[in-house]
Design a protein around this nucleic acid. Structure first.
Length: 586
DNA sequence: GCCGTTTTCGGCCCGACTGTTTTCAGTCG
């Protein structure tokens, strides 16, 4: 569990205790809100604490900040522990089941003395089998049935998944939805539409002239394994692959409002509502209420205009300053996929004793794909040869052979397609070693057009050490790109700590580029760091880190990540045409 | 507990769906 999830869960639990033990629902809301904010943070919350930046997070006030400090220092919070003593611990695991909130969880856990988190769900299943749950007032047959269903789903349910995975599932469903004669259009909603690196539930919307017929179509999707809830406007289903999908239906008149409302984020919408309220308006998924009159909106542009601001692109609707900019008509024009003119981080299938994994596609395949994507330049950046067991002389021989291989294949490619519209750059991705040295001698590095420097080992080093390592690596004149800067692997490796403002300052002053790595389980760096880098004047480059020709199409994920960091075309170096780009490279 | 270009007190987003109910509480997003 990541530190952000762990911290969010702690606060959610405190909120749950307050919910069942006290009447103050606003305090509950404050804790839940703080939990949500932490969960969606772009960087580890304990990093913020270490740097005394907790007060920069909206939703964390004096009180919760104090508790968090105690938590990170001592590993526990006295005040929280005393709250937890008031309830049977089993209630917390029960809350992970859909349909069970704090109140139901408490009721069940108390009645049946479920004091152990680890066994509570198992015991609940047993109680249902033994038909003992009906002993609980309010719990009639239908409730038990619903619970049984949820429990079954719970055991096979999945957590947050990669954007790329959610995207694929959503795309298939959307294609199906569009086939209904009554549907006009279908779109993703929520974090999927905002292009968050990970997605919890998949939410979709259909614009329809005949909602009831369309809902029938929605529920007839062949990949559904069970319908969890279904109403006339909203249904929630579970697919055969285990993923849950929410589908909302709107008539054309209210399409813009629905799309806007369910795209969120929650914090973005709450901020909009406070603005609306000041104008005497009230917002909902149906539109804007002015007194008793409901104003509906066909498009999101109309909706935002009515509130007195520019249309805000979904990718930046996180209440991270976008609303204030939109009100002043100062939103940046964000970078688009069509702006990208090259990709400098591609691994080829040239076979040699490499320090890390080789690519799987030939140069011809890579070049063909690059042309398909209308690129003007392509950079091959294989990993450096391994450092143990190879003499400098052998390494040199490998690199010469590789260069010959790439150049020769490039020439035969040009001949075969009879065009010269593509420029090949020969680079290399060179490891930043634990001590900050590069894994290739200066002399050999000089033979490349450019190198990308990346950390591939010793991820546990301190913030100071990492900062030194990176600055040292970037000091080489050919080291112009810092590859996957934080090294995070989503759901498996945390980003490394480093003094990013200091590193960005160095990059800005020395023309070094920060890579936005488009590979879906990296999407590195996170949006907050992209924002910071742009503010410090750092040049960015979006690369795919392709190890297969198919990966080159993942560029869109990097573009979306850049957008989430408020990046405009001018901030991204590989939007520049070839000659311009080559000047920057020098 | 959080928050403030009317406020350091007094507000705190809004609605669908479900189950068990004749008006609502709990849960979810």
């Amino acid at each position: 569990m990541t530190i952000n999830r762990e911290t969010a869960q702690l606060l959610e639990r405190v909120a749950a205790v307050f919910r069942v033990k006290e009447g103050d629902t606003f305090r509950v809301k404050a804790y839940n809100n703080a939990a949500a904010v932490i969960e969606n943070l772009g960087e580890p919350i304990d990093n913020l604490w270490k740097e005394n930046r907790l007060d920069s997070v909206p939703g964390l006030g004096e009180g919760i900040q104090k508790y968090l400090s105690e938590y990170f220092t001592k590993g526990r919070v006295r005040h929280f522990d005393s709250q937890f003593k008031k309830v049977p611990a089993g209630m917390f695991s029960l809350m992970s089941i859909r349909g069970i909130g704090p109140i139901t969880a408490y009721k069940i856990a108390k009645k049946f003395k479920l004091t152990d988190e680890k066994t509570a769900i198992k015991k609940l299943s047993l109680l249902i089998k033994q038909k003992k749950l009906k002993n609980l007032e309010d719990f009639k047959d239908k409730s038990v049935l619903r619970l049984t269903k949820s429990l079954k789903i719970n055991s096979t349910g999945k957590g947050r998944i990669l954007l790329s995975e959610a995207f694929k599932i959503a795309e298939e469903y959307i294609n199906y939805l569009k086939k209904s004669p009554h549907s006009i259009e279908a779109e993703p909603l929520g974090s999927l539409r905002r292009k968050l690196a990970t997605v919890g539930d998949i939410d979709l919307a259909v614009n329809s002239n005949n909602p009831s017929k369309t809902m029938e179509h929605v529920l007839s999707y062949p990949n559904i394994s069970s319908v969890i809830t279904s109403g006339e406007k909203v249904s929630h289903v579970k697919l055969k692959n285990g993923f849950e999908v929410d589908i909302k239906i709107s008539e054309p008149m209210g399409w813009g409002s629905l799309l806007q409302h369910y795209t969120g984020s929650k914090m973005h919408n709450i901020h909009l509502r406070t603005i609306a309220k000041d104008k005497g308006l009230s917002l909902s998924e149906y539109g804007v209420k002015k007194g008793k009159k409901l104003l509906r909106f066909n498009t999101e542009i109309d909706f935002y205009r009515y509130l007195g601001m520019q249309m805000i692109p979904p990718e930046i609707r996180e209440d991270g300053g976008e609303i204030e900019l939109a009100q002043r008509n100062m939103l940046p024009t964000l970078v688009e996929q069509k702006d990208i003119k090259g990709d400098l981080h591609i691994h080829s299938d040239f076979d040699y004793p490499s320090s890390h994994d080789l690519g799987e596609s030939t140069l011809h395949e890579i070049l063909r794909q690059a042309q398909k994507q209308k690129y003007q330049y392509v950079g091959i950046a294989d990993h450096n040869p391994k450092i143990t067991g190879l003499s400098e002389k052998e390494t040199k021989r490998i690199l010469i052979e590789r260069k010959k291989y790439l150049e020769k294949n490039f020439r035969t490619y040009e001949k075969s397609v009879k065009t010269r519209t593509l420029k090949l750059l020969i680079g290399m991705e060179v490891d930043i070693r634990p001590d900050g040295d590069l894994a290739l001698s200066d002399k050999l590095i000089d033979t490349f057009d450019y190198i990308i420097v990346s950390i591939h080992s010793s991820f546990e080093k301190s913030k100071e050490d990492n900062t030194e390592r990176i600055l040292n690596a970037l000091s080489h004149p050919k080291a112009i790109i810092l590859g996957h800067p934080t090294g995070r692997i989503i759901n498996s490796r945390e980003p490394i700590p480093a003094d990013w403002p200091k590193i960005f300052d160095y990059c800005a002053k020395n023309g070094k580029m920060l890579e936005i790595n488009a590979y879906p389980d990296r999407l590195d760096p996170q949006e907050d760091l992209i924002k910071l880098a742009i503010n410090q004047g750092v040049r960015l480059i979006i690369n795919t880190d392709s190890h297969h020709v198919g990966h080159m199409e993942l560029m869109k994920f990097g573009v979306w990540q850049a957008k989430r960091g408020f990046a405009g075309k001018q901030d991204i170096v590989n939007t520049r045409p070839l000659q311009d780009f080559l000047r920057v490279l020098k």
